[in-house]
């Protein structure tokens, strides 16, 4: 069997990913995460009578806590497998990448394992966030002449 035929055969038997279904699941899960976020903000605002800023910071912390806990218990990878971008794009994906990196490298020690590998996956988010914010801010500052 030559190579071309083999590739066609492989393609035929590979499980076909249903892009429409993937998109729909990502939309529904992501939207549900948005609803949870808004619900938590309202909950903190009404129960503890906090300001908008405090309750949204608490909402982010709560979501990060839940995502770290589920990751360390081993559930989150299975959830991501089904929900895909619905859980990667929200802040839960950021926490998940840090948690899984630090727990995977735990056996290499506290400093060389956890300490230096924690930002292995999440580092790019922080780096590109800071770099782009810095240059956008610089351009804005120069255009507006310091008046913002």
């Amino acid at each position: 069997m030559d190579k071309k035929k083999y590739q066609i055969l492989v393609k035929k038997h590979c499980p076909k990913e249903n892009r429409l279904l993937n998109g729909l699941v990502a939309f529904l899960v992501g939207g549900f995460m948005g609803i949870i976020g808004q619900f938590l903000i309202d909950f903190y605002k009404n129960t503890f009578s906090l300001s908008q800023n405090y309750s949204s910071a608490l909402m982010i912390i709560t979501l990060i806590f839940i995502s770290c806990l589920l990751t360390s218990l081993g559930f989150f990878d299975k959830l991501v497998e089904h929900a895909k971008c619905g859980l990667i794009i929200p802040i839960t994906g950021f926490a998940h990448s840090m948690m899984s990196a630090s727990i995977d490298y735990k056996k290499e020690g506290l400093v060389t394992g956890i300490g230096s590998n924690m930002f292995k996956l999440a580092g790019s988010v922080i780096v590109y966030g800071v770099v782009s914010s810095y240059f956008f801010g610089l351009i804005r500052y120069l255009i507006s002449g310091g008046m913002a």
């Binding site: 808004q38 619900f39 903000i41 929200p90 950021f94 800071v130 782009s132 956008f136 801010g137 310091g146």
Partner: peptide, 24 residues
């Protein structure tokens, strides 16, 4: 509301917002 604060885009927004807050 919370729907805009949960996705990772809000992380970039908050970085930019904090960097520019005290520019005056």
């Amino acid at each position: 509301g919370g729907g805009a604060l949960v996705p990772i885009t809000s992380f970039g927004h908050l970085l930019s917002h904090g960097a520019f807050a005290n520019i005056k």
